[in-house]
Design a protein around this nucleic acid. Structure first.
Lengths: 239, 239
DNA sequence: TCTCTTAGATAGTGCCACTGTTCAATTTAG
DNA sequence: CTAAATTGAACAGTGGCACTATCTAAGAGA
């Protein structure tokens, strides 16, 4: 197919596809003439992968390039690909850096959990940043307190690792690893929010105003606004 | 304290604090004279909250404003605050919208899980988007397949709901709800990545090259690069 | 032949979160 | 009392990023 067809099927503007080509995210099509190239279903696949990494994981275009390069590198063990992807995802919103104490605590936490990771893993830094914020809020950051989250994380991680088609052709397995790291993370995040709502509703809102109530005037629980674009001037005075 | 002191203690530039004041994220200080205002520790707290929402959840400034307004609204039940915060977090990277089939499947999933949420919850849409991507990848999206993630999500949600200091002054509880929704989500995400690494290492890398090996030439497992800023021109040729 | 599409190169746009600049009114150190 | 520094307010400017638009020459297709 030609580029316009590729654009149609992928739902992306031609200009955007050209942009990805320029940035090296999408391999060039097979040139048919000097002004024409043939694109395949593989390109369509690739575009879906790019959009997943951009839309869901919100990775910068440059970082998507890094992940894709790892996916394409036939030499690279899947384990390393996982590492690259994790690094990309974890460091996506890297701006501030973690404190030394935070790094210390992160190491301690991982040790207490008996989670061995490679010594230079950037994940420690990301985790440390989170612990820094938690400490700032006065929340405990020891293994015992955080056990529920650790257990949940571990449980899904086990399932996800089982889920990798290690016997399949590398290209397919690589695709799964890259997408899976991102998309199942988002799934977990969304399910967590949904569960919060379900739990809180069952616990606090369920008795007073169930769904079958006729007129629960005081709209207890009813997402006030879908986060409008601007809404200045509503602050209190504070002390 | 005056603004420069507030800047010093918070670690933020004065210009940024002024920006937040303008945007209504930070309440004005108590004016001492026409060119001077007094800021309190509450302002410091508020700045930390703002940074948590910006840095960790990556919420747009306008959305942070929405959440803060909800936090400050003494009338608003905590349950609604939770909803506002969830909406903000879930819809942060909203761009594409979910398919109808996706929404359908999301509803089915929640029903199968016995998770009752408010009918108009925007979470359904967010969840549907994730399911759309999963389906696009050929992954199953039924309750049975996704049970592990749902169980994990539910488990942490229960703990988190228990964690809200419902008896404490509303201001404090509100703060906890807003921050907690965001920060424990990030914690879970990071722990998941760490667990993935730990599991994969134990499973595939552990036997061959343990840490005590002297010279494991082929640097199996060693985060290739920390995602450099640019790296064009490494694509394959594909078909 | 005449019109349409394409590849490739370059420049421009729009959004967003700051950041810097200017000004007048103090405050403060000496 | 005076000079230097600080502040709040208004507003323009900046930088990063992901596209998006324009232009040109070269085929493709009817």
């Amino acid at each position: 197919m030609r580029i316009s067809e590729l654009a149609r099927q992928s739902g992306l503007p031609v200009a955007t596809i050209k942009f990805y080509l320029r940035e090296g995210l999408l391999p060039p099509g097979a040139p048919v003439s000097r002004t024409q190239a043939e694109y395949s279903d593989a390109h369509l696949e690739r575009l879906r992968l790019i959009r997943a990494l951009r839309d869901i994981a919100d990775l910068p275009v440059a970082t998507v390039g890094t992940v894709l390069a790892a996916v394409d590198d036939e030499e690279l063990p899947l384990l390393d690909l996982l590492g690259v992807t994790q690094t990309a995802v974890a460091g996506a919103k890297t701006s501030a850096s973690a404190s030394e104490v935070g790094v210390e605590l992160a190491g301690q936490l991982l040790a207490d959990l008996d989670w061995t990771l490679t010594t230079d893993s950037p994940l420690v830094e990301s985790l440390a940043r989170v612990l820094d914020v938690l400490r700032g809020e006065g929340e405990p950051v020891d293994a015992e307190s955080l056990r529920p989250w650790a257990d949940a994380a571990r449980a899904v991680a086990e399932v996800e690792m089982d889920h990798i088609p290690v016997e399949a052709p590398r290209a397919e397995a690589a695709h799964t690893v890259a997408v899976g790291t991102v998309i199942y993370g988002e799934l977990l995040a969304q399910l967590r929010l949904a569960a919060q709502e379900a739990v809180s509703l069952a616990r606090f809102g369920g008795e007073a105003e169930p769904v079958e109530e006729p007129a629960p005037k005081r709209s207890r629980r009813a997402h006030p606004e879908p986060a409008p674009k601007r809404s200045r001037g509503q602050q209190p005075e504070s002390a």
